[in-house]
Amino acid sequence: MSETDIGVWGVLIAVLGGAIRVGTPFLFVSLGECLTEKSGRVNLGLEGNLVMGAMSAYAISYYTGSPWLGVLGAGCSGLILGLIHGLLCQNPKVNHIAVGIALMIFGTGLAFFLGKPFIQPTAPHLPAVSLGFWSDSPVLRAALEINALFFVGLALVPAIYFMLKNTKWGLMIRVVGESADAARALGYRIQLIRLLTTMAGGFLAAIGGAYLSLYYPGSWNEGLSSGQGLMAVALVIFARWNPIYCLYASLLFGAAAALGPALQAVGISWGYYLFNAAPYFLTLMIMIMTSSAKQNLAGMPGEFTR
């Protein structure tokens, strides 16, 4: 009897630990996308930033021996992809979604192309902070072995929230996202602001990629990302364009992804394919339930209405 008790606790702890382990890249891409979308742009190409970031981080960490330089390098690669996205979208006739898909293809292709030599070698990893020192249970200790980047992300959440809500910069971003006409009347440089938020979003998404290659699962290969970047757009809708909800949504998606393997590890194995699709199904359901033809989603930047 006691054995099953350990099993249930094990599942819970695994899911909690997994929420952070699997959720961290989601956190970065969703924060990045949130920032971009707040200014009235959609970047569907964050998958490209993520994969490119993963590769650059691993390569730089391998060459320099410093994983933090790798993270920075990843961010810069994301900055460049964001710059291209931002510049292309300045033309009103160009479709944002198409640009996103184009850069996704380009970013992943380039990452695979340049990443060939880095599949075999092992690069230095990012450090982790052990919060489980008080516990005797190795299980709990492992679950509380929290990567440093998660704390960075955690600090970014209130920072971005505060920036958007209470600073002049945040106001400019929100006005540009809410109504281009109003922004123009106020004399804001719409294109420049959107360009900068897209670049910042690209930077963050690429750091999400660096997390994948430098911490968890912690190696570079072509199958590394399973669409975490593509999910960014859905996550932001899920989070109602609110950085704090982005954190919750990321943890929820992380937990959902951890649940399937955790249940299988204790012998509950029915329908794992459907389990794998659960986060997507959940997002769709929430979108359907919270949307309405009559009014816009709460928090949605006004520029998205047709």
Partner: peptide, 19 residues
């Protein structure tokens, strides 16, 4: 040239055509 070259070429063409 690795398999990814095709992806890179597609990406370049797509980006340029949009631009």
């Amino acid at each position: 040239l690795p398999d990814a070259s095709v992806l890179v070429m597609q990406g370049i063409i797509f980006v340029v055509i949009l631009a």
